[in-house]
């Protein structure tokens, strides 16, 4: 097993051959997706960034809560009857981070499913935005 340090903004999946570029492609796409969703979130609540707190109940017994303490930080939590999963989004100068902890089982897959963390966080942000937008549209 070998270990190497990487700058926090280089999210490289190590592999043989030409993999540096390959790994970055998927990671970058997932990160960009999350960034876009975060921008969407901010655009929906532009006047309130700084103290955002929202909770949404979905039709699957899942509730989603989103809160932001600053324009670059967002915490998202998905609560199901079985577990609470929290995600953190930090777009500060050190880069973008997303990880999750399962507060019920205590199990963590931190880092291993890094790409899916980005996607899941993006989905949470988007679901929140869409839900709010639908309410605003009077649906």
């Amino acid at each position: 097993m070998s270990t190497e340090d990487y700058p926090s903004h280089d999210l490289i999946i190590e592999a043989d051959a030409t993999s540096e570029e390959i790994g970055l492609e998927v990671e970058t796409a997932a990160r960009q997706r999350t960034e876009n969703m975060f921008r969407l979130w901010r655009s929906h609540f532009a006047d309130e960034v700084g103290t955002i707190e929202r909770e949404y109940a979905t039709d699957h017994g899942t509730s989603i809560s989103l809160s932001s303490a600053s324009p670059t930080k967002l915490t998202a939590a998905k609560t199901t009857p079985a577990a609470i999963t929290t995600y953190e989004f930090d777009a500060n100068s050190d880069g973008l981070m997303a990880h999750h902890t399962d507060t019920v089982s205590g199990e963590t897959t931190l880092g291993v499913d890094h790409v899916t963390n980005y996607n899941t966080l993006a989905r949470l942000i988007f679901t929140g935005c869409e839900y709010e937008a639908d309410l605003q549209d009077g649906i």
Partner: peptide, 22 residues
Amino acid sequence: APAHATRLTYQKDPNGKESNRL
């Protein structure tokens, strides 16, 4: 393309600065 499995972890240095480790 062949590959090794890897994982990315997060660490904090004594100053609280976070970094990724592959």
